[in-house]
Amino acid sequence: MKHTLAMLVVNQPGVMARVAGLYSRRGYNIESIAVGKTEDPKISRITLVVETENEAELEQITKQLYKLIDVIKINDITRDDAVERELALIKVNATSANRSQLLEIVDIFRAKIIDVSLDALIIEVTGTQDKVEAMIALIKPFGLKELVRTGKIAMVRSAVQS
């Protein structure tokens, strides 16, 4: 099953290598990894999407991650009420014949065209992984030239005040 782990780590050189290295060394797979500073510049947030076979495996990898001195906190937010976003840049073949069709898809997904050339467009789309994947699937038949994705970032919603 896929899990989203939100980690707080000390913002040190090498901390990404420690986290990623631990995964590969122990034979686990990372689907995506995104890292950036938090509101506290001494602390970074790593959002990991991992595929695990069972709960025991997830528990073991979480404990191993905690053993890294620079790891402060790990939350499995898979089942939490969280907002999740990913960003993708998609370069697609665009001819005068299909351009309008493409624009329609961009519109439906509330994506953006951020670069136009004679024979191609670059589209920027943000959203959940499902949305990004759906968009990519629709664009593919037009001739997908290049694709980059950021990996997922996520944030748990605050409780609603009553």
């Binding site: 025991a56 528990e59 073991q60 404990k63 191993q64 905690y66 053993k67």
Partner: peptide, 8 residues
């Protein structure tokens, strides 16, 4: 002392 050893 090492939680990672439990259930490993």
């Amino acid at each position: 002392i090492d939680p990672a050893e439990i259930g490993k």
